[in-house]
């Protein structure tokens, strides 16, 4: 179906060589995609800022969580200035430092939730596609059930069950995200499965696990990577939504969604309170989308657009 599979009709002993070509080509193509490069740069920037924040951010901008209550009335809701580039919030804390620490939450949730749903999706998809029959019916029916739920409602109920806190947020988002990945993986496997080299491997006596991991998985990896990248953005948006509804991380820790919620009541008077964290979400999700688009084009993965 794609160049990825076309190039990979060699037995596994030679698998490494074409793979390098594939990824090498893809990387070259990705580098020519200006938007994707921009996305990568922004992601690297955000990741670096989030990782190193402890070393410089509180020193420069003050604590992201604590405040001096005796000064609160005088320092709260200040408009953006040199001292506070993004202004201060209702309790007198610097908004920029909270946005910086909020990146940790968004990135953690984005990556871990995606990892979880990808893992579950892969296993489910493999079960359905490779074994077919009853397995296929069960897995796909289960996926139907999950997809029949109104998504936001389902996450909210899951979090009501699990309680608040960052780990529950990414677990809930991760668990609920598997059906789409499972479907993609299933259809990829179904098309790869028909290839001669899979039959050949089976004829040579390779085990199921070996066939899946050594032959089918490498040939589906391109589409998985693309889907996962796009999924990160989606998970970040879901986390923001949950925090906005008050079900995310525990206060006083900042998260972009919580900051938007906090800012909502000051929309008319101090709009920067909700603007800044929103821009952070927008740019970060956009970066992952651009990277995902770039990867899709570079790896020549065909996707349904919706």
């Amino acid at each position: 179906m794609s160049t990825a599979t076309d190039k990979k009709e060699a037995p596994q002993s030679q698998a490494a060589a074409p793979a390098r070509t594939l990824w090498g080509d893809a990387f070259a193509r990705l580098r020519r995609n200006k938007l994707a490069v921009l996305g990568v740069i922004w992601i690297i920037f955000i990741v670096l800022v989030a990782l190193t924040a402890d070393l410089w951010a509180p020193q420069l901008l003050g604590s992201p969580t604590e405040m001096d209550t005796t000064q609160a009335a005088a320092t709260s809701k200040l408009p953006p200035s040199l001292e506070h580039p993004f202004g201060t919030d209702a309790l007198g804390r610097d908004v920029l430092v909270r946005v910086i620490y909020g990146a940790r939450v968004s990135l953690t949730v984005g990556l871990l939730a995606t990892a979880i749903s990808t893992m579950i999706g892969l296993v489910m998809g493999a079960l359905a596609a490779y074994y077919g029959g009853l397995w296929d019916t069960i897995v796909m029916r289960l996926a139907d059930i999950f997809l029949a739920f109104p998504y936001t409602l389902f996450v909210v109920v899951m979090l009501a069950v699990m309680g608040q806190g960052i780990q529950n947020v990414f677990i809930a988002i991760g668990i609920l995200g598997w059906p789409s990945i499972a479907r993609v993986f299933r259809s990829t496997i179904l098309s790869v499965k028909e290839n001669d080299y899979v039959d050949a491997a089976r004829a040579l006596g390779a085990s199921d696990v070996r066939i899946i991991t050594r032959h089918i998985f490498p040939n589906s990896v391109a589409s998985i990577v693309v889907y996962a990248t796009m999924n990160i953005g989606g998970a970040i948006l879901t986390e923001a939504a949950l925090s906005f509804l008050g079900m995310g991380v525990t206060p006083p820790n900042p998260s972009w969604g919580i900051m938007i919620q906090d800012g909502q009541q000051y929309l008319a008077t101090q709009p920067w309170l909700m603007l800044m964290p929103g821009l952070a979400i927008l740019t970060t999700v956009l970066a992952f989308t651009l990277l995902g688009d770039g990867l899709r084009d570079a790896l020549d993965v065909k996707m349904k657009d919706a």
């Binding site: 923001a240 939504a241 938007i260 909502q264 929309l267 929103g278 979400i281 927008l282 956009l286």
Partner: peptide
């Protein structure tokens, strides 16, 4: 379209309120 997809819908709603309402 890329921007719309990357934007939290509730934030978009607030932006619209800010622009038209305030």
């Amino acid at each position: 379209t890329s921007i719309l997809v990357a934007m939290p819908a509730f934030w978009l709603g607030m932006l619209l309120q800010l622009f038209f309402g305030v």
